[in-house]
Design a protein around this nucleic acid. Structure first.
Lengths: 155, 155
DNA sequence: TATTGTTATACTCTATAACTATA
DNA sequence: TATAGTTATAGAGTATAACAATA
């Protein structure tokens, strides 16, 4: 077990055990990404969760709320107001599913698709800025490593 | 630009653009880690933030609240109740700094060091479980990649 | 019985502005 | 004037339990 040289972040402050914990660095990197994401989408009225929902609905037309939420790790109860926001903003169309009258079939409106496209362009710039220190193979490996961790998720 | 094969998470649900966004995978992987972290520390009364503070205080005795918060990306205002929790639990000792009477010098109590040690043992198991699919070099590179992203953080 | 969407609720985390006391 | 700690507050995210309508 090789001992890593202690990382010294600001003003010679040491992090202690944190410095070698993947969970800590995940939290900080994810936070940095999220903060820049907010800036990237400033003025669009979109947030991380709303964008994620638009993306999944666009890729799976007529999917219902519960399934979208499950794909994104969002509780049913919390999906309600999120979908309401998107419907109120006329970005998502919600119709009673012909297959199951309990469920709603969700689709993007034309405005929703336009909004999604706008956000994607902004997010690509944001990703480029956040990953500018990583070469293409590093970026691919980062996503591969993160995907293997995501698979460890249990209820 | 090579096109990656579409990832199909649950039941053939597609994520759309999300699948290739590092920010999305960071969020999900970080969330999976955090959820397992909660389970790992169940019964200890500790949370992610409290553990992080204990770790930094242990590594920097007599450091003040503001500096600890800055090292961890926690606002001054939010540090107050967190430090109160740790002091009330008798894990951290808070004394007026001899150098600056506005500031508090923070130290771990004996109980605090014991609590930290207990948490570290649990967290090492938790990290081992979450990273079991990654070989040692992969784990090291993951932390290296994440550290480069953290450095992109701007106020 | 199980599932979809819903309501109500609560707790954590995060962010901001304004105050006090010291420097 | 700037900084350390504080208070109050508000918003977002997340979690659970219970209900109605439908499967």
């Amino acid at each position: 077990m090789a001992t890593l040289p202690q990382e010294i972040p600001e003003d010679g402050v040491e992090l202690g055990v944190l410095a070698d914990l993947a969970g800590y660095h995940l939290r900080r990197a994810s936070g940095a990404f999220a903060a820049d994401f907010v800036r990237a989408l400033d003025g669009t009225g979109m947030r991380q969760v709303l964008f994620a929902i638009l993306s999944v609905v666009a890729a799976n037309p007529d999917m219902n709320q519960g399934a979208v939420g499950r794909a994104l790790g969002i509780q049913r109860a919390n999906m309600v107001s999120l979908i309401n926001e998107l419907v109120d903003a006329a970005l998502v169309e919600r119709r009673v599913s012909p297959d199951d009258r309990r469920a709603f079939a969700l689709r993007l409106s034309v405005a929703g698709q336009a909004k999604l496209d706008d956000c994607i362009a902004r997010i690509h710039e944001h990703e480029e800025a956040m990953l500018s220190d990583l070469a293409a193979p590093d970026r691919a490996q980062l996503i591969a490593l993160l995907s293997r961790i995501e698979a460890k998720e249990r209820s």
